[in-house]
Write a protein that binds this DNA or RNA. Structure first.
Length: 186
DNA sequence: CCAGTGATCAGG
DNA sequence: CTGATCACTGGA
């Protein structure tokens, strides 16, 4: 089930951990569909957040952040890497959830490269797009969430210290004997 | 450690 | 227009 608008209009600190374990779907022009589990996210929380691009206010680059949640916010860094982020919260609340890692490979630069993200995805609506969207994962997930400082934002003073990065950690199961043959998890 | 690479933004 | 900066990666 594709996530609907009401998921994206929550605030970034709620959505960032809630996206872990969900499924990012990309459909290519050939019709090929690939799916990845979202395993690492970061929350960027509005104009007060010194680490956020929205800290400088509304500019041509950040204008999509001021729309209602559910749109893609993408931008190029270091002249090479397309970053994938999701604009969230209500109109004029420039909050974003940055997709830092997907299952199977690591690093936000690789995410953009793998999914062939480019400028044309700027403002793409995840609730309507035919080439990229996010689905709920119906299987109950056995994982915990590790919180950490965000990466690459040392300039952000007190906001560099915020634990607004969320990492999916697979939780190993413990198996115990029940009777002669049975096993169960605890 | 550091280079690669180009959009973006503030300041003239 | 200029120049610094950058939510990164890969290779000394």
């Amino acid at each position: 089930m594709r996530l609907k608008r009401n998921f994206y209009t929550q605030n970034a600190l709620k959505i960032a951990p809630n996206l872990l374990g969900k499924i990012l779907v990309r459909k290519y022009p050939s019709g090929k569909i690939v799916k990845y589990i979202i395993t690492e996210t970061e929350a960027y929380c509005g104009e007060k957040d010194k680490a956020s691009h929205a800290f400088k206010g509304k500019t041509p680059r950040t204008k999509v952040m001021y729309e209602e949640g559910g749109l893609i916010y993408t931008y190029l860094v270091y002249g090479m890497y397309w970053m994938l982020a999701i604009e969230v919260n209500s109109k004029n609340n420039p909050e974003v959830v940055f997709i830092r890692c997907l299952d199977g490979f690591s690093g936000p630069g690789k995410v953009g490269k793998e999914l062939k993200i480019d400028k044309s995805f700027y403002g793409e609506d995840l609730t309507k797009s035919k080439r990229i969207w996010i689905e709920d994962n119906l299987q109950r997930q056995n994982f915990t969430i590790k919180k950490a400082k965000r990466v690459g934002v040392n300039y952000a003073e007190e906001y560099a210290e915020k634990l607004w990065r969320f990492i999916l950690v697979v939780k190993p199961k413990i198996w115990v004997k029940t009777g002669k043959k049975g096993l169960k998890t605890v």
